[in-house]
Design a protein around this nucleic acid. Sequence first.
DNA 1: AATAAATACAACCGCTCTTCT
DNA 2: AAGAAGAGCGGTTGTATTTAT
Length: 271
Amino acid sequence: MDVRKGPWTAEEDSILFNYVNSHGEGRWNAAARSAGLKRSGKSCRLRWLNYLRPSVKRGNITLQEQLLILDLHFQLGNRWSKIARYLPGRTDNEIKNYWRTRVQKQARQLKYDVNSKGFRDTMRYVWMPRLLERIQASTDSIPVISIAIDSDVDQPPQSHLDPTHSSPSKSSWVNSHVASTTSISNSISDQVQLQVSPVSDIVENFKLIDTSEKDEMVVLTDQGYDRDTMNEWIGWEESLENGLWNEQDMLFLQQQFSAQFEFDDVTPNSN
DNA sequence: AATAAATACAACCGCTCTTCT
DNA sequence: AAGAAGAGCGGTTGTATTTAT
């Protein structure tokens, strides 16, 4: 049995597309056989689900979608298919690829381990707010956009995601998800709520710098930060009272980081 | 201009869990 | 009840395209 592998041709695509259209999804081995495709059923299923299916969305991942992916990954980890359920038209494969190519790349450039606390904090307190800013800038009809980062991120994701269990106090991100997935990309009337968690993990992260120990400086330079930047941070950090982070502080933090981030411009896809 | 290196995305693989017969 | 087929998942690889040298 010669079973074809590798990229699908336009001809194979049209055969599979027509077959599924008239016979429906499922029973992929049989489908492959009776459609006359020299492909495994598994390959046909994947091709349909990830590419041919009319509902799959083509084109760049939007800012809103990026934000959603980051947030959901926080809560769910590498549960790509679960994440994909919140992004209509996007496949688990696509999201996984996005994560690996963009997010992991960013971590590499910052010399972070992608799972490290430092990188997670950077994403959460810098990258995501910055994304939000850009969303706000690009959808100027939305009067207020704000971020919701739950202060209790360590709780199981179900309580965030299962509507039956989400209490009002914990529903901020969920609400933003709903807004994002259902209407932000299409509508201009939705708002996303902002509540930055008052005392963040990142405070502790910066305490490290505050000690001004040489060793720790070296560690941080190893992570990709130059000495001048770190000195600025130290001065800045010392100026902060132990306590709440206000909006200005967050802005400052974002500015410190933002130069290190590149964000892809989302250009309308031509096809 | 040529080619090497990097990137992005599509597709595959091995495995588990579920459903069907 | 059990084995086979189907479906789904996450990780990895292959390849076409883009970018750098």
